[in-house]
């Protein structure tokens, strides 16, 4: 499955009411390869959510263009092209559970596929498949989405997007507001989708532990610009960038820094997760 996204000189802004807000994206140039797993980080108002919206055509660039597969998104893109792009790039907004509306979970998940021209039978099949992906049982299909718990609602909402069979899945803070267990499950799901189905995943996050554990690449944004795009290990070894962007360290790395300060010497390798850190500590004979 080859699905690349290419940003060329993208500048964009919103129109809120009669007023235009200042530019939210400024001259973005990015190339996101197929089957990648990318985290987008940066302070609030850096343009992270806007970047996600431009990939799906909810926000069209004022200048420049976004190339999704063979479709070009800019000011002149037609509605039917937008629809094709939206089927390929599934976007899960922040707190996606607020979009649930149907009487039953089944109807809600089928809503997307039906809009994109699936027959009722196909839609039901897709719904069941999506439900399995997010780890829910089929008996939930007949329940009202409003009777579910918070974590279940979120998973149903994500299933609603997965049922579209997107080739790129873009999520705006998928873990926020969930308990640790719920978060873990969501990210396990994303990892599985990425590895088994080759779906590209892009997610916005403020939690550096999530970034360090699950992402492969990281995009750092600040004031509407991309200030870093590369492998996560590159980011976490770049002290200057981390302090400039006021990015927190993942727990394991913070522990490592304190440990190194105490013993007065550096460990052999930068550790991003607890497992890595434990291994290095064992290898070097500290425990």
């Amino acid at each position: 499955m080859a699905m690349e996204i290419q940003f060329t000189n993208v500048t964009a802004d919103y129109k809120i009411g009669p007023l235009r807000t200042a530019q939210v994206l400024y001259e973005i140039n990015l190339h996101i390869p197929s089957s990648s797993f990318t985290a987008i980080v940066g302070p609030t108002g850096a343009g992270k959510s806007s970047l996600l919206k431009t990939m799906n055509g909810l926000l069209l660039p004022k200048e420049g263009s976004v190339q999704v597969d063979r479709f070009l998104l800019d000011q002149h893109t037609e509605k039917n092209v937008l629809k094709l792009v939206r089927k390929k790039v599934g976007l899960v907004l922040q707190f996606p559970e607020s979009q649930l509306f149907a009487e039953t979970v089944e109807k809600d998940i089928c809503f997307g596929p039906l809009n994109f021209g699936a027959t009722p039978q196909e839609a039901k099949k897709l719904a069941i498949e999506a439900l399995h992906h997010v780890g829910l049982q089929e008996d939930i299909l007949t329940k009202s989405p409003f009777s579910l718990s918070g974590g279940q609602k979120r998973r149903v909402a994500i299933a609603g997007i997965l049922a579209l069979k997107p080739e790129v899945l873009v999520l705006d803070e998928p873990g926020v507001g969930l308990d640790p267990e719920g978060k873990e499950e969501i990210f396990q799901l994303l990892t599985k989708l990425n590895r088994e189905l080759g779906i590209s995943i892009l997610f916005v996050s403020h939690d550096m532990n999530e970034v360090a554990r699950f992402a492969e690449d990281v995009i750092v944004m600040n004031k509407g610009k991309v200030t870093f795009y590369g492998k996560k290990r590159e980011l976490f070894t770049n002290e200057e960038l981390l302090t400039n962007m006021r990015l927190e360290l993942p727990d394991a790395l913070r522990f490592q820094r304190q440990f190194e300060n105490k013993i007065g010497k550096k460990l052999g390798k930068i550790c991003l997760t607890e497992e890595e850190l434990a291994d290095v500590l064992m290898e070097e004979g500290y425990v």
Partner: peptide, 29 residues
């Protein structure tokens, strides 16, 4: 509206009846 647009809901397209139907997934939430 954005969230439903993502799922392929189109606003302001088709007959008046279709347009009204497209608003249900917005008004209920």
């Amino acid at each position: 509206m954005d969230a439903q647009r993502i799922r392929g809901n189109e606003f302001g397209v088709g007959s008046i009846f279709q347009q009204m139907k497209a608003l249900v997934p917005v008004f209920l939430p």
